[in-house]
Amino acid sequence: MNSSTITRNIIRAIGLLLFQVLVLIRVDLSIGDFTYVHFLIYPFIILLLPVNTPKAFVLISGFVIGIIVDMFYNSPGVHTAALLITSYVRSLILLMLQPYEGYTNKTSPTLVQMGFSWFISYIAIMLVIHCFAYFSFEAFTFVYFFKIFLNTIFTVIPTLILFTIMHLVFRSKY
């Protein structure tokens, strides 16, 4: 992990956080009664950290990012709890999706390094986990399981498309 990787990650973190809490928070995608579409783009800060980042650091950064997002969303703890779960299972999912030759020291889970299909499956799995956790914590009960399920589905798809486009535009290698 060289200084360029760290800088890029910090810049990405700041950029995505600002985009989330200043722009996406104002985007209203509800069509009549259909209020299930949201954009949750901040988890990608955690998802795109280099593979050999210390696990404890991933957890702590997840906690801090979650707190910041919660400050703007006025929902103390909800985003934090969901992002912590995402950070926690990240290492497990990375291990599951490990390529045949393994990860190198410099590997970042990005589109450029890992290829399109790997990248899409990785962020899709992580996003589903994150959104499901987030909407579960938001409802705080599984009584409305169908609503949680709809929210998850209709948040994952547009977020995935949006981020993939952004990622293709910036073409970040790390």
């Binding site: 957890l59 919660d70 703890g77 912590l84 779960i85 926690y88």
Partner: peptide
């Protein structure tokens, strides 16, 4: 993880009316 998650859930329960 469990410590931080505990803090987050504590925040959820204490500062969100519906939860």
């Amino acid at each position: 993880f469990f410590l931080l998650e505990g803090i987050a859930i504590y925040l959820i329960v204490n500062y969100n009316q519906s939860q």
